[in-house]
Design a protein around this nucleic acid. Structure first.
Lengths: 219, 219
DNA sequence: GCAAAAGTGTTTTCGATACACCCATGC
DNA sequence: GCATGGGTGTATCGAAAACACTTTTGC
C-alpha cells in the first residue's frame, strides 16, 4: 500500500455512542446540543474521533467519560456508517456503539467548549438530529430490542440491586410491548441473568418487593 | 474537530474478506501469499484499503473482484480490529467481513503484482498468517457457526440447484458436528430457507436425489 | 441379495406462552 | 374491606431432538 496516496488519506474514524436509559417509565436517549459548525445548535449523539494511537473501545470510553462522567460501562457495537459524505470536508467512518445506563450516574456538564447542553430525550419525541444520527439511533434501538435478552446489555441500567417489577417495566418500555410478569420472572431466573439477593426493598410501596441483582457471569 | 491534528490523521481503513468454501467435504478459507513487505511471503486474508471516497461495502466488492473474480455475493460484517499496532507504520482499522462461496466460481489470478499465489486452505491446517489474521479467521468461523441458519449466508455456496445431502454435508463440515438428516430437511423446509424444484439430480450416484434451491426471500 | 445412499414419519422433550389465584399494605 | 401491587404455579402449544424403516441402484 502506498501510504502517501491521498485517496488513502484524509479519512478518520468516528465513534458514536447511543446511550439509553429508562426514566420514569420512558425510554430515552442521551443527546448533546452542538455549539459549533457543522450542524451548529442541532442535537447529535455523543461521540468523537478516534486518535490514530488508540483502540476504538478506548476512544469510546474517553469520549463518554468526558461528556457524561460515566465510566466502566460496557458498550456493544451494532453498526458501521460509511457513506463518504456523511460528514462534511473529511471522510469519517462511523462506528455505532450502544449502552444502557442508570440515568442517575450521568453527571455530564451542561455546557462545555463544544456543547451547549445535554439532555435525555424520549425516543418517541426526538428532535431532528445532526449528520446521519437519526438512522443510527433507529439502528441502535432495533439492535437493543433484538439483543435485550443477551444478559449483559442492561447490566448498568440499575444500581446493584433492583426489584423485578422495575426490570419488568424497563423491558416493556424498551420493547414497546407488554410482557407477562410471571413468564418474565421465570425466564430471567432460569437463564441465570438475575439472581435473588434475599433482600427486600424498603420503599413505601403498597407491598415491598424482593431485590435482585444481575448474575456475575450470565450463560 | 481539528482536521489537521496529526493525531486524527495517519490512519486508514482496511477491509478483510474471510472467504470460505466447502470442497470435497473440507471446510476451507481463501488465502493469498504476499509478494511484498510487510509479511513478505506469508499468507494473509484477501483485503485492502478503503478509499476515502467510497463506502466500505464498495471497497470490499472491489478488492474481492480484483483478487478472486467473484462478483455479486453478499458479505456480512462480523468484527472490528483496532489495535493501533496491528499494521506497521500506519494505523489501519480492520473491518472483518465474511462470505461463503462456490469454489468453482473463484477465478483469481495465481500471480499478480501484489500476490505470489492464492489458495484454499483447510481451516484445520492453516499456515501462520500475516498481521492479526489468525484471530480474524477464528472470529469469522465462530460467527459463521452462530449464523449459519440465518438463511442468507450460504446462498452462494452452490450453483442454483443442489441436493439436500450436499447441503447437509456442508453444514456438518462447517459446524464440525453431525446433524440428523431428517430434522435437517424438515427445519430448512419449514423455515422456508430452501424449496423443492421438482427436479432430480442426474449424477451416477447409487440413488438420485431431489434438487433444491434457496428460496428467493427467506424470513 | 446386499451394501450404500436417499427418502419419509412418529414420539418425546423442552422452552415459550397463556392464564388465575393468594398475599401484604395503605386508605 | 377493598383497591393496588407483588408473589407464585399449572396447562397448553409448538419447536427441537431422538429415533427406524422403506426405496433405489450398482455390484
Amino acid at each position: 500500500m502506498n501510504y502517501s496516496n491521498p485517496r488513502y488519506q484524509n479519512q478518520g474514524i468516528h465513534v458514536l455512542a447511543t446511550i439509553f436509559t429508562v426514566e420514569n417509565g420512558v425510554f430515552k436517549v442521551l443527546l448533546i446540543n452542538r455549539k459549533n459548525e457543522p450542524y451548529k445548535n442541532m442535537w447529535s449523539l455523543v461521540g468523537g474521533a478516534v486518535y490514530c494511537d488508540e483502540r476504538v473501545e478506548d476512544a469510546l470510553r474517553r469520549e463518554v467519560k468526558e461528556k457524561t462522567g460515566i465510566e466502566n460501562i460496557s458498550f456493544r457495537h451494532f453498526g458501521i456508517y460509511s457513506r463518504p459524505d456523511r460528514a462534511p470536508k473529511f471522510r469519517m467512518l462511523g462506528l455505532g456503539y450502544i449502552a444502557v445506563v442508570d440515568h442517575q450516574e450521568v453527571t455530564f456538564l451542561r455546557e462545555t467548549t463544544q456543547t451547549n447542553n445535554a439532555e435525555w430525550f424520549d425516543i418517541k419525541k426526538l428532535p431532528p438530529l445532526a449528520f446521519d444520527h437519526e438512522e443510527i439511533v433507529a439502528d441502535a434501538i432495533e439492535f437493543l430490542k433484538a439483543n435485550i435478552n443477551d444478559g449483559e446489555i442492561l447490566k448498568e441500567l440499575f444500581p446493584q440491586y433492583f426489584t423485578l417489577p422495575e426490570l419488568h417495566k424497563a423491558y416493556e418500555c424498551i420493547l414497546d410491548r407488554k410482557l407477562d410478569r410471571r413468564n418474565f420472572r421465570k425466564k430471567l431466573l432460569k437463564d441465570g441473568i438475575i439472581e435473588d439477593t434475599g433482600l427486600m426493598s424498603r420503599t413505601q410501596k403498597v407491598k415491598s418487593s424482593k431485590l435482585y441483582q444481575f448474575a456475575k457471569l450470565s450463560k
